[in-house]
Amino acid sequence: MSSGSTKAVLTAIAGNSMVTVAKFIGFAFSGSSALLAEAVHSLADTANQGMLYLGLRRSQREADLNHHFGYGQERYFWNLVSAVTIFFLGCVYTIMHAVEQLRHDHTPELSWIPFLIIGFAFVVEGYSFFVALVEFRRQAEEAGKSFRTYFVETRDPTTLAVLIEDAVAVCGLVLALVGMGLAAWTGSAIFDGIAAICIGLLMGGLAWFLAATNRKFLLNRSNDEVNDIATKLWQADKQVQHVQRVNSIVLSPDDTLLMAEIELREETIFSSMSQEEIKQAVRFMGKLDEIRRALEDDVSRIAPETQHIFIEFTIPKKQAG
């Protein structure tokens, strides 16, 4: 498990847990829709980051009889679940509550306590954002990419999710502060309600971004960078005549499955053989291809849903004695 990603997630969980309690206390004192929206926002973030940590832990399990390539995609699954949680808990509930408050023209009682809580949240969530930003920059440097490029191309959804969530959290605090400030200044509840709706929409956008980011890796997305590297290396190899096909599947941020079909040069295979040996080798290779196709057809005939079959032959072990 990436220690940097784990630190970013645990920092976010600890910070959001404290901030969630503080915001709900502030809402109890003020009745502010904007502060309730922020409390629900932090609650959703805490639940989300708990799922991120669960995904990190579960993705590290070893391969077994039921999961031959391990559990790496658990990380993407739990990120997707957390996006759904943010959408329904953060976006939908927050907007519904804010609209209801506006309908009843409920004016919040804004003393110094809610503003103090907003300041406390700025410090805690700002620090969490800083930790995630430092870790994300470190990962980008290790990958040899710029921040912007790595932001688009990263296959690690965990640190990216924490970074985006913390950035949205800080933006949400700004909206809450502006809405509450205008409501206190004018005595009108509309600014507080509008701020809450904006925070809800912000969380809706966050949920959509996280869902889209993780969805592509749950649909057997290829690793284009690995494909390009493999293709270039093999095409430059003097033993290779032609690279017919290169396929890959991202199993986790640290694990890519690579499959390829490569045509070798005849002189590479037959350079030290006599004409008779070459004929025998050609017959042997033809026989292997015949066996491979027969084995594939056997499976496809009984299990037609098996659309992609990759068989690798091994050299028979020498008989003892």
Rank of each mutant, 00 (worst) to 15 (best):
T11Y: 02
A12C: 08
I13Y: 03
A14L: 10
N16Y: 15
S17A: 11
M18D: 06
V21N: 04
I25V: 11
L36W: 00
L36H: 01
A37R: 00
H41K: 02
S42W: 12
L43Q: 02
L43M: 02
D45C: 01
T46C: 08
N48Y: 05
Q49Y: 01
Q49I: 06
G50A: 03
Y53Q: 12
G55M: 05
R58Y: 03
R61C: 05
H67W: 00
Y76G: 00
Y76M: 01
A83N: 03
T85R: 02
F87C: 07
L89W: 09
V92P: 05
T94P: 14
M96A: 12
L102M: 13
L102T: 07
W112K: 14
I118Q: 03
F122I: 15
V124F: 14
G126I: 12
E135I: 05
R137W: 05
A140G: 14
A143S: 12
G144W: 09
T149M: 02
Y150M: 06
F151S: 08
R155H: 13
D156L: 04
T158M: 07
L160S: 02
A161C: 10
E165G: 02
D166I: 08
D166C: 02
A167Y: 10
G172C: 11
A176Y: 08
G179I: 10
F191P: 07
D192E: 06
G193L: 06
G193N: 02
I194W: 11
M203W: 06
R215L: 09
R215N: 07
L218T: 10
L218F: 09
L219Q: 15
D224W: 11
L233Y: 04
Q239V: 09
H242Q: 09
H242K: 11
Q244T: 06
N247V: 05
S248I: 01
L251P: 05
A260T: 14
R265C: 12
E266L: 12
E266K: 14
T268I: 05
I269V: 09
M273W: 07
D289R: 11
R293W: 12
E296W: 11
R301P: 03
T306Y: 00
E312A: 01
T314W: 00
K317Q: 05
K317A: 03
K317M: 03
K318C: 02
Q319H: 03
